[in-house]
């Protein structure tokens, strides 16, 4: 058995997910063919593939993906920038940390998904509300991780750097940033996954375009093949996004090792 394991992709990665997709595809195809399931319950893989192609050719799939990615981009950007600034400020000032901690602790339980109906009332079906949800979702993850990463730097490193005459921007860019970057990027990796989920969830209600809108709309029309096609697209985009951040992490912090599960 362990001889087979040597040829298998490492867990947690894209290659392993691809293998899993193939296994799942086989099970799904077998179930659909053996039990002759009705298309509304479980369409066969070729039917899903056909509707995927159909949507891709008509251009509606591209438009939905673009809408979702635009919402993701702005929400992630706004939430991350604000989160980085808050996290850095909290790590630097104890008074600010004591003031902001209870606020963050309180708002941690006010879920981004629970404010979607509110944002539909406020902003209608425009993408502003979706951007708000995504930014809100990212903000706390990034702020908490950044604060923890910066205040978790070994004080000996900082003392040593100061002793050899390191200060100001030199201290920030050559010592603090490299030491805190792995933690910050871990936060960003969690945030990007959370942001992508938030985009889909925010599009479920009060939207006119996007992948989340597309699959709920298909569900209302009992088009299960479209729902599954949409889910696969959501999964693939999510995979690409998280791989991109993982790549960024490996490129910028090669000194930090990561583990699978």
């Amino acid at each position: 058995m362990s001889r087979i394991a040597r040829y298998l992709p490492s867990p947690g990665g894209a290659a392993s997910a691809l293998l899993g997709f193939i296994i799942l595809l086989a099970v799904w195809w077998g179930t659909a063919a053996m039990f002759q399931t009705r298309p509304v319950i479980l369409p066969s893989p070729p039917a899903v593939w056909r509707s995927l192609l159909e949507m891709a050719v008509s251009g509606s799939l591209g438009a939905d993906i673009t809408t979702s990615l635009v919402e993701l981009f702005w929400g992630f950007l706004i939430g991350t920038v604000l989160g980085l600034m808050t996290g850095a400020a909290v790590a630097r000032s104890r008074a600010l940390a004591a003031f902001l901690d209870p606020i963050v602790d309180g708002f941690r339980f006010v879920l981004p998904f629970s404010m979607v109906p509110l944002l539909v009332v406020w902003f209608g079906v425009s993408i502003t509300g979706k951007i708000f949800v995504v930014a809100y979702a990212c903000y706390f993850v990034v702020a908490v991780n950044t604060a923890a990463a910066i205040s978790g730097i070994d004080p000996l490193i900082l003392k040593a750097a100061r002793m050899i005459g390191c200060s100001g921007s030199h201290l920030l860019f050559r010592v603090v940033l490299p030491a805190a970057l792995p933690g910050i990027l871990t936060g960003l990796q969690v945030a990007v996954a959370y942001a992508w989920v938030s985009v889909i969830a925010a599009e479920y209600i009060g939207a006119q375009a996007g992948l989340g809108y597309m699959i709920t709309n298909a569900q209302a029309g009992l088009e299960t093949d479209k729902v599954i096609a949409g889910m696969v697209v959501i999964g693939v985009v999510g995979l690409v996004l998280s791989q991109a951040v993982a790549l960024l992490r490996r490129a910028t912090t090669p000194y930090q090792s990561s583990t699978g599960w």
Partner: peptide, 24 residues
Amino acid sequence: LLLRPVLDFLRFISPLAWVPLAIL
């Protein structure tokens, strides 16, 4: 060997994306 790749794949499709399918 069999299940971990499957879970690796399924985990990338967020549970929240299953809502329409769960309703069907």
